[in-house]
Design a protein around this nucleic acid. Structure first.
Lengths: 346, 346
DNA sequence: GGTAGTCGTGGGAGCGCTCCCAATCCGGGA
DNA sequence: TCCCGGATTGGGAGCGCTCCCACGACTACC
């Protein structure tokens, strides 16, 4: 027997409409009737048909998470898994269904937009911003599908987004290294074709400026988010003899550490090291990395909340939300060692 | 202007039905008419409404990927990300939408089944098997929603599943270590509450038996898939002085390596090491791990293909598919070294 | 030339909901 | 006693598709 509102109504002695009211938790149903209907629903395990509901209400209860192509780092870096976890968690809480769109090629990505928008498969999307001038973002901006960007997008003003405090976190990292007495501080950055790369770099430079240090070009390198690129950058950086290096991601820092190991340069005895992200790899390395932790899972959760707010009309965009970062002092910067030998040092 | 089949039909001078036939690529439409309709569709960018389609056809074009709770290793191990990637990729190819269900708690998981089944949100699900006697699996077996299990489930006979050749791969690993002359071979296993743990263990033991070695209990340890557990297991194993150790996952092997580093035991000079999985961490360690590679992404792809086959009625379950593993010889087992010093040795 | 198919097409009848309006019931105030 | 308004409830009218049957135009065959 296929269950429908009508059928449940018959069993409870009410109409389809009343059952609908009970299910959607609308007022104006007498408590006793509500109870009677609810009992039948519980007994039968009835669930309203999602397609019919969508068709009639023009809402699907599905939100999309879009991860553009060119994110080769997807599975080289725990960032995306953690983000997915946050988004998934918040979706479950809100009883929304999470649709995941991961693209390997530009073509797949191009096909997405029509698939997403015209057909009304999703109520809205969360899209991770990767590079400047993402065409998908442009199309989204032109359409009327609600969306939230994770990471500061290129044209940020008119867009609702959630981002980590990349600038502030990197600034704090630079200050920390300065305060520890390091002067020649190197930098291994993320690509400046991404806003995260730009912001972390500018934060780092600002931090140095605050303590009166100016970095020279020979102390600056760029990586591409991969472990290997961190390894290569550090190899190249070594000849400039930095006293400390700030690496813009944990994963690249792990690569940098590998280069230092190979070169028999001891961390933190011979060189101080800091990274950004605060993901598991930073804690698993030897020595453990001093890092700037960004709340990745929380970012995902917040993105869902904002998106649902937008979809429901509870909030009005654009909203910009910056998630705070946190300095996590472990071994690689040498602070632990300093504390041991000189407790007066802060 | 809201586009509908009717509207497109009017623009092309045909009926709703004909437009539907064109969209669904059914025969019996005159080529010229088909072209005319297709042109209008292309011009307008029309996409049929997914909800209406689902309601009428009783098919959603959505498949679910269920990752049960208790998978703490989700983001500690690249396995799940890679699996997700494979599933996503295959879904895109098939123009199916991927819905992701990741659970943190048992309660969330319990709520899923009704949400999934009654409402017809998905056409079928892929579920990763984690532990023996998973209640979700039991319910799925009782219902009539098509599903495919990734990993050998508890009650495998009646269920369609895709699994890596855990037994064969581990057997090959044991044989490889034997062939290299190691005799006291230790084992750090995955939990035997999972079928992967069971199969890898049995394969390892069978491999040893084949070459006449018998492991004693003091050479066997169990981990729980985490890096930390591998670290602890290896620490405990060291006192038994194994000549080589086979670790049932890369991640645990990385932990084991850390323990060996700390104990100043050189790999592969003082001890041989092998692992299972062949994921990125195995290549990034120092020394690089000799490992048994399982095709994770391909497993995800295959799972989608099987599921869609089941959904479309193209294939009839249950089907059991075992994905082959591959021995990847790198540095940690000592084979590289042997080859260098004695080229006659195979 | 008539009778059967065959092909291409149109349109009715839902799919199971939500939305909205009308109908009913009840109590309070005139 | 009668009228009015609010609280409840029922049911019609779609939402935009797919499915299926019917119809007209041909073709083929006897």
């Amino acid at each position: 027997m296929k269950l429908t509102l009508e059928e449940i109504g018959r069993m409870a002695g009410v109409s389809r409409s009343t059952v609908s009211r009970v299910i959607n938790n609308e007022k104006s149903v007498r408590p006793e009737v509500r109870q009677r209907v609810q009992d039948v629903i519980n007994q039968t395990g009835f669930r309203p048909n999602a397609a019919a509901r969508s068709l009639a209400s023009n809402r699907t209860g599905v939100i999309g998470l879009v991860i553009p192509h060119r994110v080769h780092t997807l599975f080289d870096d725990p960032y995306f898994p953690l983000l997915i976890q946050g988004v998934s968690q918040a979706s479950n809480t809100a009883e929304a269904t999470l649709a995941l769109f991961i693209f390997q090629t530009e073509a797949e990505e191009r096909d997405l937009y029509p698939r997403l928008v015209g057909s009304g498969t999703v109520d809205g999307v969360i899209i991770t911003a990767t590079r400047m001038g993402d065409p998908l973002l442009t199309r989204l901006a032109g359409g009327d599908l609600p969306y939230v960007v994770v990471g500061r997008p290129d044209e940020a003003e008119r867009v609702t987004y959630v981002d980590a405090d990349n600038h502030g976190g990197s600034r704090a990292a630079a200050l920390h290294l300065c305060n520890m007495g390091y002067r020649r501080i190197g930098y291994i950055g993320a690509p400046t074709s991404t806003t995260a790369g730009i912001d972390r770099r500018s934060g780092f430079l600002e931090g140095l400026a605050v303590c009166g240090a100016t970095p020279t070009d020979d102390l600056m390198r760029d990586g591409d988010y991969t472990e290997e690129s961190g390894y290569l950058a550090m190899r190249s950086l070594l000849s400039s003899r930095p006293e400390a290096v700030f690496v813009a991601t944990d994963t690249m820092a792990v690569g940098a550490l590998r280069a230092l190991n190979e070169a028999q340069v001891s961390v933190p005895n011979d060189i101080g090291l800091m990274s950004f992200d605060g993901l598991p790899p930073s804690e698993r390395s030897l020595p453990k990395l001093t890092t700037v932790r960004q709340p990745v899972t929380a970012t995902g959760v917040r993105a869902v909340e904002l998106l649902l707010g937008l979809v429901n009309g509870d909030i009005e965009g654009p909203i910009h939300e910056i998630m705070p970062t946190e300095l996590v002092i472990r071994e690689s910067c040498g602070a632990a060692r300093l504390l041991e030998t000189d407790l007066s040092n802060d």
